[in-house]
Nucleic acid binder design. Sequence first.
DNA 1: CGCTAATGTAGACGTCGTACACATTGTCTT
DNA 2: AAGACAATGTGTACGACGTCTACATTAGCG
Lengths: 218, 218
Amino acid sequence: MTTIGIPPGANIGGRDTYRHGDLSRALVEAGVELARAGGPAAVALRAATRRAGVSPNAAYRHFADRRALVEAVCSASQGRVAEAIEAEQALVADATDPLAAARLRFRAVGTGYLHFALAEPGLFQTAFTASTDLESATSGSRAGTSGRTPFQLLTDALDRLVAVGALPAERRPGAEFLAWSAVHGLAMLLLTGPLRALGPEQAEGLIRRVVDMVEQGL
Amino acid sequence: MTTIGIPPGANIGGRDTYRHGDLSRALVEAGVELARAGGPAAVALRAATRRAGVSPNAAYRHFADRRALVEAVCSASQGRVAEAIEAEQALVADATDPLAAARLRFRAVGTGYLHFALAEPGLFQTAFTASTDLESATSGSRAGTSGRTPFQLLTDALDRLVAVGALPAERRPGAEFLAWSAVHGLAMLLLTGPLRALGPEQAEGLIRRVVDMVEQGL
DNA sequence: CGCTAATGTAGACGTCGTACACATTGTCTT
DNA sequence: AAGACAATGTGTACGACGTCTACATTAGCG
């Protein structure tokens, strides 16, 4: 009640102004750190505001509720996945044979996806366990540096396979969901499933075999 | 402080004895109901004890913590999945050609798994999103009526494929993980992923195609 | 310079998990 | 049969969480 505002000497948090400046971004960044350490369940409004040096309710000026913050963190995490895929594709970009190049580019989508899952399990689960729908899977807020979301990178690679003749056009429709299923399922088995304790080299072997299976079975 | 024990007339919860009788089972059953309605996150100790007509702390006589209760609910849910797979296999049990029978039996593992996921999304996610390791994937507490866990039903079907000559023996090792990856990944896409809003008939088409891909690509 | 909307704070409520102390009761030993 | 002991359930309490309502501060615009 009798709050005399801000005590002149004691500044709030690590801040000297009443306004934060870019709280929305700070909250998402804090949320990403929380997600990295503890997965989607660890993304808490209070923890994020604490990290941003702000009172808990300040978050409600920028996010409708916790779900909205998690959504934003999810988008940011998908951006990281997209960057991981792009990095993996960059490693194989110098193939001269266009058919082989398209195949390698397609495989890089899967291996990049899975390598990211192993390297950043908390972020990965936040990116794809938190519910997403199709329209948001192509939203710009989830894109990497190239401006494409993980889902779009996959469809691009499949389109290229068709263009180059490596995939019959009649098998193209829906193929993204088949490929995504296999790769995403392996990620889940490796992260939270029965293959959690697998060593890196055995995981790598499974990754290769799953991508083989997809290439073979599409 | 001055609790005179149980007031003579007012009985606790819906109970007339101080002891519950089979609280452990009652808590798991309550947990299953919670999981069915709201997935693994909805499995709360307090909610389960409330349903069982018991004080919150009574749960700690039977489960070390919330994780332990969720684990138990997870095992129970996996038992339901096993039953769903067995039911799907029973539908195709009357094939006379042993090779065709083995193939149908194998496919029934995947379709049963996915049909259960669509029919009971909350239970399905509780069964497989809550972390599991390999040794517990073969534990009896997760088995269906046949005494086999979903994982064992899958390996059984693969072994039969090899025995019948439908799968080269050198491709057998690890094949369970490839098949599981594809099927589990599709389940995730359909439940919490971008395919959440898909209609039943389109989902059914994807299920068939994913199982095709596995059969083709193993 | 003052109004208004945007932004942050304070306090409160109900939920959750869980630790600690205590009450009740079945069982086993003497 | 009586009393000790372990198993089981209750009560109270604490801190964390999400979120509601009211209030304080400030930027920007007329």
